[in-house]
């Protein structure tokens, strides 16, 4: 097929945008594996920087993973029932509640963190534990689970399915766990992946909430950007990308499946 010149122009533009998005990422990959970035790739490739980063910063990786998993669990436990309730109620109150839930995302993270810090900062043991950061992450990620789960619930004709379960003798709790939850698994999965991804990368809140004992991966990254040499910072970024990209791939696969389901 012959393409018009407009198509070519748009394609070129898109490729340019793509280059803008990808070139720095590639540069960071190369820098993290190059012996000396000033001299260029000709100085040889090495895993030394990654090893060095791992030595210095591996606790941040573990803490971040721990936080992300805990955050996903917490958000599921409070978010799935909340999504169910919001879909079920669908009145002025539920819409107001949804608004309230999204507010921590709309507000600058720094402001939320400051509010948390000034209110709960004086509780020493809470302040210095990783749970303090967890609270911030849960607040920030909650809507990212509730929204997709609500969308799936609205699509699945859940009320009728629930009526069917009730007609077969299932009480409210049983209906929730045997009909509601299994039928929005895809939404929950998409939400959980998003929550884990965001929690792993959260910085705005975490920077204010962390203590020297509770450094997460992005906090460590910021540290290394400020103080370490470029190769170390790049290697560290590389580790972060290695953690986050598989999650993003899975997320894209699931959202593709979800949108196909929508058309069916």
């Amino acid at each position: 097929m012959k393409r018009s010149s407009l198509f070519i122009a748009q394609l070129l533009f898109t490729l340019l945008v793509c280059a803008f998005m990808l070139v720095p990422v590639l540069m960071s990959l190369v820098a993290g594996l190059t012996r000396n970035y000033f001299q260029g790739v000709s100085s040889g490739l090495t895993f030394d920087w990654i090893a060095q980063v791992w030595q210095a910063y591996s606790p941040t990786v573990w803490l971040s993973l721990q936080l992300a998993v805990a955050c996903a669990v917490c958000v599921c436990v409070i978010g799935v029932p909340a999504a169910y309730a919001l879909v079920r109620m669908n009145n002025r109150f539920s819409r107001a509640f949804e608004e309230l839930m999204v507010l921590p995302v709309a507000m600058p993270g720094l402001a939320s963190a400051l509010a948390l810090l000034l209110t709960y900062g004086q509780f020493g043991s809470f302040r210095s534990s990783w749970l303090f950061i967890l609270v911030g992450h849960v607040l920030f990620t909650l809507p990212f689970l509730v929204r997709p789960v609500m969308a799936v619930m609205q699509r699945q004709h859940l009320p009728t399915l629930e009526e069917a379960a009730a007609s077969l003798g299932a009480g409210p709790l049983r209906r929730f766990f045997s009909v509601v939850v299994p039928n929005c698994r895809a939404g929950i999965l998409a939400g959980v992946l998003m929550v884990v991804t965001l929690s792993l990368g959260e910085f705005n809140l975490t920077w204010m909430l962390h203590t020297p004992m509770t450094k997460t991966l992005p906090v460590g990254l910021a540290d290394s950007y400020a103080s370490a040499r470029l190769e170390v910072a790049s290697a560290y970024t590389l580790i972060f990308l290695l953690m986050i990209v598989p999650l993003l791939v899975a997320l894209q696969a699931i959202s593709a499946r979800l949108s196909r389901g929508e058309q069916r």
Partner: peptide
């Protein structure tokens, strides 16, 4: 079902 989310939001937000 909304109670846990409401509690968390009220206390920490």
């Amino acid at each position: 079902a909304l109670a846990p989310a409401a509690a968390v939001l009220a206390a920490f937000w």
